[in-house]
């Protein structure tokens, strides 16, 4: 009897619509995010994450209306990321119905935001999402994984493992390791960096970017020791001909890979 591994659905939401990107580009429209969130909740998803949830791509205001609409139909944890620049932004998102906030580029620019958020709302509320890219190892990036920001367009010269340790030390309650290289490729998570981060910190670690098969998700848990795995394409990407239901995914993970999960329908 142990804490089960979590399956998290991730939505890119722009201008109130669910979209799907590949390596942070070429977003295509998928549908109404509230409808999808409700369907996945009914289907047994363990958590839902909305990223880049902006009401206007120019003004970059957080789309609190969509956050509220999701919170009215989803009774599992709900995380919102993108567009959060301050403790006040966090408060607004939490009031609108999110349980956790995810910060990414802003945490790199101003790491004190992690601590300020943790003081105001508790560490469990503050998720630091890391965009990592494999690079040749060098003195400042000894792990061979570098942190990228601003939609993964800007490299920071920061080592991913060093940043993970620092973010956890500053008060992050959870770390998402998103591989920019694997994102949207359906070729599998980057298990190497996920495992190294999981070994380096004592907070939960979430694998993200690249899941295309049940075996990929199982490997994130069993080989990289991620406590949770983010899936999106497998559930709804228009670039994949066949999709999984949450129930199918969980049943296969439990039966074939032996992963301990909250059973569907419970």
């Amino acid at each position: 009897m142990v804490l089960t591994r979590r399956l998290i659905a991730c939505f890119d939401v722009r201008d109130g619509r669910l979209t799907k990107a590949r390596q942070f580009q070429d977003n295509v429209d998928v549908g109404d995010p509230v409808e999808f969130a409700a369907r996945l909740y009914e289907d047994g998803i363990d958590e839902i994450v909305f990223y880049d949830i902006t009401a206007s791509s120019e003004r970059r205001e957080i789309d609190l209306v969509t956050v509220e609409r999701v919170a009215e139909v989803v009774f599992v944890p709900f995380t919102v990321g993108g567009g959060i620049r301050s403790v006040e932004d966090m408060r607004a998102v939490l009031k609108a119905g999110a349980e956790k906030v995810s910060i990414d580029s802003m945490a790199v620019r101003d790491p004190s935001l992690i601590t300020a958020g943790a003081r105001a709302f508790g560490s469990q509320c503050i998720v630091v999402s890391m965009q990592v890219r494999a690079v040749p190892a060098r003195a400042e990036v000894p792990s061979g994984y570098e942190i990228a920001i601003d939609g993964a367009r800007v490299m920071t010269g920061m080592d991913a493992v060093v940043w993970a340790e620092r973010a956890a030390g500053l008060g992050a309650g959870e770390l998402v390791v998103n591989s920019v290289d694997q994102d949207g490729t359906h070729a599998g998570y980057d298990l190497e960096i996920t495992r190294r981060v999981a070994q380096a910190v004592n907070v939960p670690v979430v694998a993200s970017g690249g899941a295309g098969t049940v075996a990929h998700v199982a490997a994130a848990y069993l080989e990289a020791d991620a406590q949770a795995a983010i899936v999106s394409s497998m559930l709804y990407s228009p670039r994949l001909a066949e999709h999984y239901s949450v129930r199918e995914l969980k049943e296969e993970l439990m039966a074939i890979a032996g992963v301990e999960m909250r059973p569907p329908g419970s």
């Binding site: 004592n202 939960p204 406590q227 999960m261």
Partner: peptide
Amino acid sequence: RVPQIGWN
């Protein structure tokens, strides 16, 4: 790992 986050 602390916090405990998830379904138990």
